[in-house]
Every structure is written in C-alpha cells, then in structure tokens.
C-alpha cells in the first residue's frame, strides 16, 4: 500500500507543487463546500468586484451537496459530485487564490490552463461513498447561501479525508494516463 501524503489546509504554492498525479492524500483542516448554484453566485461577485463570503486564498473547495444529518450526526452522506459542471466557473476562483478542488470526473482544458498558471490541484475522491467519507468530517457549518439548501456553502472541518491527485499543476492527468495503462 502506498503511504498517503498528509495535507493541512490552507495550502501554499509549495504544498501543491509537491503533488503529482496518482498521489494519495489525506486532508486535515478546513475545506469549503460549493456546487453549481454557489459557484454561479461566487463568479458573479468576482465579476462585480465584490467581497466573497470567504477568502479563497490557499483554500480547498469540495464539490458536495450533503444529505441532511440524522440527529447526533455531524452531516449526512457527503460524497463528491461531478466536477465538470463547475468547469466554466473554476478559473475565476483559481485566479483568486484557490489551491485545491475535490470532486469526481475529469476537468476541461480551460480549468487545466488556470491550474497550471496559478498553481491549483484537482483531487478526486470516491463518488457514491458518501457514508464513509462523512466519517472524516468532524464539523459542518453553513456560512453562506442557506437558501440553496444542499447547495449552500458549508465550512467543514475534516480529519484524514482521503483523496487522490487526479490532475496536477504540471498537466499530469490520471484520467488520461491511468486509463491508457489499462486500455486494451
């Protein structure tokens, strides 16, 4: 078994430059949630030059809309959603200092260009493993856009949250390289 790299958020340029496609990581610290609707609002604020609900610099965004928490639980099921839907928005957030994105499925060339230019890494985690991933989430608090329900922005505190480097700052892409290795 390959040993996982521990990553404490927020991340620096040095942190993300060390990571290569295929590396397994475990996150500790704060990550923020945002999906389609929250991304649209954040991009509108950036375009208007207005202040964002949280400072993006060094932060990691997890693409998740959790199910409601049962009484006594921190959060419900909390696995990743498909990342491609955030592709039109992500370059704006990356230019504002975002250092990591966590989701599932490959990203567009536009996102890759921004990731390489501003140093941001894309991590994949296991879709459909929301019950297991929720166990790594120790605290959850809605910090913006409560009206969006499951799509609200949450501040999560995570411990040993598992992910894999899918696309790195050097253009390395596990969705291309990994698949090439096993195609017949």
């Amino acid at each position: 078994m390959i040993r996982a790299i521990m990553l404490s958020t927020p991340l620096s340029d040095q942190d993300v430059e060390k990571l290569r496609m295929g590396d397994r990581v475990l996150f500790d610290g704060v990550v923020y949630t945002a999906r389609d609707a929250a991304h649209r609002r954040l991009v509108d604020l950036i375009k208007e030059g207005k202040e964002l609900p949280f400072d993006l610099s060094g932060q990691v965004i997890y693409y998740v809309g959790p199910s409601p928490a049962r009484p006594g639980h921190v959060i419900g099921s909390a696995g990743p959603t498909s990342s491609y839907r955030m592709d039109p928005s992500s370059p704006y957030l990356i230019a504002k200092g975002l250092k990591g994105m966590v989701g599932k499925g490959p990203r567009s060339q536009g996102v890759v260009d921004a990731m390489m230019k501003y140093k941001c890494v894309y991590f994949a985690t296991v879709g459909g493993a929301g019950a297991l991933l929720a166990k790594a989430i120790k605290k959850s608090e809605v910090i913006a856009y409560e009206d969006l329900g499951p799509e609200a922005i949450r501040r999560l505190e995570v411990e040993d949250f598992p992910a894999i480097v899918a696309q790195d700052v050097y253009g390395g892409n596990l969705y291309v390289e990994g698949v090439k290795r096993y195609a017949r």
Binding site: V64, G65, P66, S67, R70, H73, G76, S77, A78, G79, V126, G127, G128, A129, G130, A131, L132, L133, A134, K135, P150, P162
Partner: peptide, 18 residues
C-alpha cells in the same frame, strides 16, 4: 472503499450516496 461504504450505510442507516 465502495464495499466498506455499503456496510457503513446499512449499519448506520445513512444513505449510500448523498
């Protein structure tokens, strides 16, 4: 991970996927 997730979901009555 997927198999372990299924066990957790069944035992804790938490949805398999959000």
């Amino acid at each position: 991970i997927i198999l372990r997730n299924a066990e957790i979901a069944r035992e804790e009555r938490v949805p398999i996927c959000q």
